Computed example of a mutant assay.
Amino acid sequence: MAWFSGRDSSGSGDDGDDAPIWESRGFVASGIVIGAVVVCLVVWLVVGNGNGAPSGQQSPSVTPTQGPTDGPTDQPTEPPATPDPPTATRTPSVPATPNGTGGCRAKNPPQRIPREAPEAVSWQFETNMLIPLQPQGGPALEDAKGLRSCFAHSPTGAVLAAMVTLGQIRNPQLTEAVLRNRIAPGDGRNLALKAARTSPTPRNTAQTSQFAGFKVVDYLPNRAIVSVAVRLDSQKVAGLPVTLLWQNNDWKLMLQPDGSFNGEVAPDVLQSLEGYVRFGGA
C-alpha cells in the first residue's frame, strides 16, 4: 500500500533484481496506485519492522547510526541526527504536562517555527522505528491500543504529529486505527481504508528507516506543511512532504485523493540535510 506517490527526483536507480526497492523505476511508477504490492520510494508499511513483530514485543536497542566516511555523491553531507544522549524509552504511555496542560490541552503554545530540535524529547520504538514524544508538544494521550494523539496547536506540535503518525501507520496492528482517527476525512482516507482492508501488507525484511530531521514548509493556524527527512539507509535520506489540518482540537494528517500523502509532489532524495532541522532518535 503506497503512502507516497510520485517519481524519485534524483533520477537514479536501475531496475535490476539486486537494486534496492526504492531505486527501481517500476517501484516508483507503480506507487501512484493505492493498494499496489510494489510501491514508491518510501512506504511506511514496506520499509519498516523487518520481522513484522507487533509493537508489544521486545524492540531492538538504540544505537547511533553512523554513515561511512566515503560514499556516493548522494550521501548526505551531515551525520545522522542523534540526541545527546539517546533517550529512547519503553514507557507505556506519555503523560501530559502537570495540570493536564500538555499537547492539545496547552493554552497559547509557542507559535515560532522551530529552527532547532525540540527540547525535552524522548524517543520510543513503534515497531522498529523511533518516534518522538514531548510532554509539552505531544502526544499527550494514548488509547488502550497504543494509538497516540493530542498534539499542541503550534508548528512544533504539527512536526511531532507528522512524525508520530507516520511511525504508527506503519504498525500493521494500528494502521486502520490511524487511518480512522489520525487522518482527516476525505476521499483519500476512504480509498486508503478500503485498500487497507482488502490488500495484504507487504513488508521489506532487510531495510529499516529512521527519522533524520524536518522542515516546516508553511504554517497557518488551521494547516501546516512539513517535510520530514527519513534516513533510508547509511547513504540515502528522503524528504517526504506531509500536509496537516487542525481539526477537532488536534492535528490530522491529510491524504490526497489518490490515497497518498503527497499526490503529485515527488519525494526528494536529499543530497544533504541543509535547510532541515536535524532531529532523530537513531
Results as ranks from 00 to 15, higher is better:
residue 172 P to Q: 11
residue 74 D to E: 13
residue 105 R to E: 13
residue 37 V to G: 05
residue 275 G to D: 00
residue 174 L to N: 08
residue 71 G to C: 06
residue 38 V to P: 00
residue 200 P to Q: 14
residue 195 A to T: 02
residue 2 A to F: 09
residue 65 T to I: 15
residue 47 V to H: 15
residue 47 V to S: 08
residue 105 R to N: 13
residue 86 P to D: 03
residue 217 V to C: 01
residue 115 R to E: 15
residue 33 V to M: 11
residue 1 M to D: 10
residue 195 A to H: 07
residue 225 I to R: 12
residue 199 S to Y: 07
residue 186 G to M: 13
residue 40 C to R: 14
residue 123 W to S: 00
residue 220 L to Q: 15
residue 87 T to Q: 03
residue 181 N to R: 15
residue 225 I to E: 15
residue 56 G to D: 14
residue 141 L to F: 10
residue 145 K to I: 06
residue 98 P to H: 04
residue 260 S to G: 06
residue 83 P to I: 01
residue 249 N to W: 09
residue 265 V to G: 00
residue 33 V to Y: 09
residue 187 D to A: 15
residue 171 N to H: 09
residue 154 S to I: 06
residue 64 P to E: 10
residue 66 Q to H: 12
residue 74 D to I: 09
residue 226 V to T: 08
residue 102 G to P: 11
residue 128 N to G: 04
residue 49 N to V: 06
residue 230 V to C: 01
residue 257 P to F: 07
residue 70 D to P: 00
residue 203 R to L: 11
residue 77 T to E: 14
residue 177 A to H: 08
residue 31 G to Y: 09
residue 208 T to V: 14
residue 108 N to D: 15
residue 202 P to Q: 03
residue 124 Q to G: 13
residue 280 G to Q: 00
residue 86 P to R: 00
residue 259 G to N: 11
residue 204 N to T: 08
residue 61 S to V: 13
residue 25 R to S: 14
residue 139 P to V: 01
residue 154 S to Y: 03
residue 174 L to R: 04
residue 230 V to A: 03
residue 55 S to Y: 06
residue 157 G to K: 07
residue 126 E to I: 09
residue 267 P to W: 05
residue 183 I to S: 10
residue 252 K to W: 09
residue 117 A to R: 04
residue 216 V to R: 02
residue 256 Q to N: 14
residue 270 L to W: 03
residue 60 P to N: 01
residue 209 S to D: 01
residue 123 W to R: 00
residue 45 L to F: 00
residue 137 G to R: 06
residue 82 T to R: 04
residue 274 E to G: 13
residue 5 S to I: 07
residue 167 G to T: 02
residue 137 G to K: 06
residue 163 M to G: 02
residue 81 A to H: 01
residue 268 D to S: 04
residue 132 P to Y: 05
residue 147 L to F: 09
residue 108 N to M: 12
residue 40 C to E: 14
residue 276 Y to M: 05
